[in-house]
Design a protein around this nucleic acid. Structure first.
Length: 229
DNA sequence: ACATTAAGGTTAT
DNA sequence: ATAACCTTAATGT
């Protein structure tokens, strides 16, 4: 196991209030691992042996329905904790985490969770804060799915990815990880065909540029308007 | 207003 | 060459 540098965690919200020695303690208990694109970090229903911090890359958090088709619940960006089932009374993971791009994550045994929250100031509050934010985002997209038209839902989904992971390019904001039309339909409750048609139409109107697994938002303002209609 | 079906085209490996 | 991904049109609810 390579020796991990303290700079990996300094500045990240869950650890922002901790001193160097405390971060050292935490890192010495961590494992680190690289995940290729498409690899599962953990699976829905499995024993929650560990919790994680994403250092680099992007994850899809996915749930499979009774019917067998999967829906994308949310994405995880670098610096975020995930798989924090131990945070409250869960011994299995509620969803599956899949690397959307090549990713690197730290992991800790679930057993040390209570230790962390007790010993390190700010860790617990920050964790529950992100937990709350995620819950809010999930029920927001949930009501959006139930009430809004497809074009608006897809516009919102694309905007969320751009806001979360967007990097500026000469042409606009580029989503930083590979996304297929199927992926977008899995997060909006529609079909890949509809997503394809919408992206084609938006491309004609100069709102996005998309090639396979790749979306650039060239006119964010126009997309925001679509998401608000 | 959207899904489904079907058929064909393109791109990565 | 094959599979994965994307497009478009026609038809159905």
């Amino acid at each position: 196991m390579p020796k991990l540098d303290e700079s990996l965690l300094t500045g990240l919200p869950p650890f922002s209030q901790l001193n160097r020695a405390q971060i050292r303690e935490i890192l010495d208990q961590a494992g680190s691992r690289r995940y290729e694109e498409g690899t599962a970090i953990f699976r829905e229903g499995h024993d929650a042996e560990s919790f994680f911090l994403l250092l680099d890359g992007y994850l899809r958090v996915v749930r499979t329905t009774q019917g067998g088709d999967q829906i994308i619940v949310l994405h995880i960006s670098p610096g975020q904790l995930f798989g924090i089932a131990p945070a409250l009374q869960r011994d299995t993971y509620p969803a599956t985490a899949i690397a959307a791009a090549e990713s690197i994550a730290l992991s800790w045994s679930a057993r040390v969770w209570s230790d962390f929250t007790a010993r390190y100031p700010g860790f617990a509050t920050e964790s529950y804060k992100t937990l709350g934010q995620r819950l809010g985002q999930i029920q927001e997209t949930l009501t959006e799915m139930a009430t809004q038209a497809v074009e608006k839902r897809v516009a919102c989904a694309v905007l969320r990815m751009a806001n979360q992971s967007g990097r500026k390019t000469p042409n606009g904001i580029e989503i930083a990880f590979p996304v297929t039309r199927q992926n977008v339909s899995d997060m909006t409750g529609t079909t890949l065909h509809t997503v394809s048609r919408l992206l084609s139409a938006w491309q004609r109107d100069g709102i996005v540029e998309s090639t396979r697994k790749h979306i650039v938002v060239t006119d964010p303002h126009a997309l925001v308007l679509l998401s608000e209609q």
